[in-house]
Design a protein around this nucleic acid. Structure first.
Length: 270
DNA sequence: TATCAGGGCCTAG
DNA sequence: CTAGGCCCTGAT
């Protein structure tokens, strides 16, 4: 099916921006995204025109939300550009980035894993967990594994989890499995809470601190006022912003600005 | 072979 | 509030 998207939307930048760990380029120009039980193959055929593997119903019920296409990033870009010289540069470089609305459970586990790891290593651990414990999904192109639900992981021991390369984070993930399946932290219910309480609920899980909670809030619940501050963002604040955090300038869009800055720093590291 | 750092968090003091 | 430790892997 053909889709027209009349907004900032750059697949390569989105995939390289470190917010999703299983999405990627599968072959010349075709990107694959996975969320829940759905798999999408998408390719930009002409400027603003995309070929997608799903039907119209699935595009509207799943992927418009996933790609945050109800939000106009061009308008945000124009509104926020011009407030801060360094941030402006990162926005110019990252134009086309969007904040995906990904599955909260997958993002929770992935970001617990992410602490003190490099992105390729995170991707590897997430992939091993999917490979070992995910259910099989057949598409018209390939057979792959979905990311396992919390319930799928209930029987997994700490030792099993360590064999996925997660190291000392294994007990953290077990605690997440336990609290999410028991409903002590209900990922569906907390969706309705205001930002502060949402973060607090997530931080009841061991191994979930301020940064991980903000990642889940931003990358799966679409809380664009939330700003995960990691080593790259704090370096940007120290090295490029004279030690003064720029995020107060951007209010409800601060999380989106964070993604421009993160992408900019990451793509310039080597 | 040795050392370091990687989208942090927990515990002690 | 700050300092250290942490499991493991890839890079140098």
């Amino acid at each position: 099916m053909q889709i027209e998207i009349n907004d900032d939307f750059d697949l390569a930048k989105i995939v390289a921006s470190g917010q999703c760990f299983r999405a990627g380029l599968v072959n010349n120009g075709t990107y694959r995204f996975i969320t829940g039980n759905n798999v999408l193959y998408i390719q930009e055929t002409e400027r603003g025109l995309f070929s997608v593997s799903c039907d119209c119903d699935e595009w509207h019920s799943v992927w418009i939300k996933y790609f945050d296409l109800d939000r106009n990033y061009r308008t945000i870009f124009e509104e926020e550009h011009g407030k801060h010289p360094f941030v402006d540069r990162t926005m110019d470089a990252g134009r086309g980035l969007r904040i995906l609305r990904q599955d909260p459970w997958e993002i929770l586990v992935s970001t617990i894993i992410s602490q003190r790891k490099s992105i390729p290593v995170i991707q590897k651990s997430v992939e091993i967990i999917a490979e070992k414990y995910g259910t099989i999904k057949k598409t018209e192109y390939e057979e792959l594994k979905l990311f396992p639900s919390a319930k799928d992981l209930l029987h997994v021991s700490e030792d099993d989890m360590r064999k996925c390369g997660v190291g000392y984070r294994a007990p953290y993930i077990l605690d997440a499995i336990s609290k999410v399946t028991s409903g002590e932290v209900d990922l569906g219910v907390i969706k309705e809470l205001p930002d502060g309480e949402l973060l607090q609920s997530l931080e009841r899980i061991r191994g979930v601190g301020e940064k991980v909670a903000n990642c889940v809030a931003l990358f799966s619940y679409g809380r664009t006022a939330c700003v995960p501050v990691d080593v790259w963002i704090s370096r940007a604040i120290n090295d490029d912003c004279c030690g003064i955090s720029p995020f107060d300038l951007y209010g409800e869009n601060a999380g989106i600005i964070q993604q421009y800055i993160f992408y900019y720093k990451l793509s310039r590291q080597r």
